[in-house]
Amino acid sequence: MRLPALGVRFLILATFGIFFAVPILWLILAPTRTDKALIMGHPIAFGSFHQVALAWKHLDAFSGHIYRRWIANTLYYALSATAITLVVSVPAGYGLAIGKFPGRKLVLSLTLVVMIMPAAALVLPIFLELNAMHLIGRSLSVILPFAFFPFGVYLAYIYYVTALPPDLLDAARVDGAGELQTFLRVALPLAKPVLALIFFFSFVADWNNFFLPYVLLADSNQYPITVGLSDLLASTPSFNPSVGGGGQSVNIFKPELALATLLAVVPIAIVFVFSQRALVRGLVGGAVKE
């Protein structure tokens, strides 16, 4: 390749790289700096670890350690809902993949339709339904709707259709297994890659869900981190001048906010690292004959 063409290619890539990297870098560096330094100083610069500790102290002190509570709430909601999702969606996907029953195609089509439907569109009917069941304001009001994860059913369906040789199931049946044993002893153990995939996507979707808990939960002690962050944002003079200037009791400024955002991403990053191998395997599983 000629040098000018290489240069143009590099320039385009570098422009896009910098465009996307700068905000992330700013976010990572922001907790190390003071609010003043963030406004007056160079946008990309490192402050001090002492400033990070100070930002955490302010953040943790906010509303009586409520930030910790939000993280704990989110873990509880996301893990509970994901557990239900796994228990429900893997057998459902298996049934759709190998079952021969009337209405199978209809159920599959409905799964796809619900999958592409925006979650916000369902908030009002879900609210009315939960209200009728007297669940509004309870943990279950978030966990149960979170557990409804048609994408997980579809992932399991695709996995079983493409990656599980039908001969294996037939072999188990001939070897003396009933349908339940065939699923539990053969189909389920072979679904580890797709289990990891569903776990990851369900956990991330639940962790990031804002609108549903925002509507369904009134008590800030029950908030997940997404709703909590918006509460935090509303308490920051930088974003909400009505809460006053530096003389206020709440020490939440840009560095604290950046730290809160960064910490909120950590659990997802950990889940990703642990499920990465299975994720990659799951994504390519069935693509080639092994």
Binding site: D167, D170, R173, V174, D175, G176, A177
Partner: peptide, 11 residues
């Protein structure tokens, strides 16, 4: 059902 036929199969 296959399990009740007492046969073995090689695929």
């Amino acid at each position: 059902t296959p399990k009740d036929r007492d046969i073995a199969m090689v695929f």
